[in-house]
Amino acid sequence: MNFWERMYLPAIAKGLGITIRHFFKKIPTVKYPEEQRPYSKNFRGLHSLKRDEEGRERCTACGLCALSCPAEAITMIAAERTKEEMHLYREEKYAAVYEINMLRCIFCGLCEEACPKEAIYLDGPHVTADYLRKDFIYGKDKLVEPVFDITKLNPEKTN
């Protein structure tokens, strides 16, 4: 190294130049909860149990999803529909308890493919963190999609 290089000052100035350039660069970080990156079309997130056009649950508790699940994350208890429950469940047999253990689930989407009634889709958001293991077992309260009421959605347009 010659004298000029041994002073290191030019090298330091060069380094400072690089860092100050980065100072004014656009920041690629996405502030997650406020902004979200666009998801891919075939992104698989939280499961949702679908309803049909009349708002009845589609699931018939056949157990194919539980069978196809490689992680054995799905458990369900079937029940028979009574007369009064006609408006709630589409099929004669329905799932009284439907639980997915989110710690076991690998979001492979095989349940989605196995379902003959098109009742389960992995179209939700990320599964959030929690404090207790038991809180990761999602029941029907979290999985079944809310009743879709078109009149409430946009009252002016439907009148």
Binding site: H22, F23, I27, P28, T29, K31
Partner: peptide
């Protein structure tokens, strides 16, 4: 904050 900006991050926000 400056550390964040220089490393292409936001820093505490």
């Amino acid at each position: 904050k400056i550390a964040g900006f220089m490393q292409d991050r936001h820093g505490p926000n």
